[in-house]
């Protein structure tokens, strides 16, 4: 067993696109291949059905949730925030990445805990750092940061350093 070749990744990509389109027409918005990963951007309204299908389909059976994390692209209007899910089929050793994007005004996603118990803390992390909320999550509160902070630190508009400082001039370093 070894890491998939470019050809195998392409085949997997084509298979998933055709299967997803047959099951839930129009759900795949954009696809690409990033290094050894097929990446699919799917419709946010159908994200739960997509992941459930990918997990339970006997051929695809992506039964292992490797990781998930929030994303923030403030310049993409109506698609500022995103969520990335990375799935793994352990027996066949194939990996895929699913993304979904949504505007800052609709920050609610369905929780994936019914599919993977391990989604619990990963979703709390996305809530803690990006403010993405998860419908029906049993314990949606901050996980790594203090509970009483009012900001979401991994958003791009949250400055890493104290913005009121005037003793540093980084402009000549391209920052």
């Amino acid at each position: 067993m070894a890491t998939a070749t470019a050809e195998q990744v392409q085949q997997l990509h084509d298979l998933i696109v055709s299967k997803l389109e047959a099951k839930i027409p129009g759900v795949v918005l954009h696809t690409e291949i990033q290094y050894d990963f097929p990446v699919f951007e799917v419709n946010k309204a159908k994200i739960y059905q997509v992941l459930e299908f990918l997990k339970t389909d006997p051929v695809l059976s992506f039964e292992f949730l490797t990781t998930m994390c929030g994303l923030h692209y403030p310049d993409n209007s109506a698609k500022e925030f995103g969520m990335m899910y990375q799935l793994h089929n352990l027996p066949k050793n194939t990996r895929i990445r699913i993304k979904t994007f949504f505007p800052a005004s609709a920050m609610e996603l369905p929780t994936m805990i019914p599919l993977w118990a391990g989604a619990n803390w990963m979703e709390r992390e996305a809530f803690d750092f990006f403010g993405i909320t998860f419908k029906d999550h049993p314990n949606l509160k901050r996980i790594l940061n203090m509970e009483d902070i009012t900001f979401f630190p991994l958003r791009k508009d949250f400055p890493l350093e104290d913005p009121t400082r005037d003793d540093k001039n980084d402009s000549m370093f391209g920052r």
């Binding site: 490797t66 990781t67 994390c69 994303l71 923030h72 990335m84 990375q86 118990a117 391990g118 619990n120 803390w121 990963m122 992390e125 391209g174 920052r175």
Partner: peptide, 23 residues
Amino acid sequence: ISDGGRTPYRLHFRRPCFIYYQS
């Protein structure tokens, strides 16, 4: 995620014990 800049645009660590400690 690299946007071609001098720093990563986004870097996420999949930390194994963060994921399994919730059990």
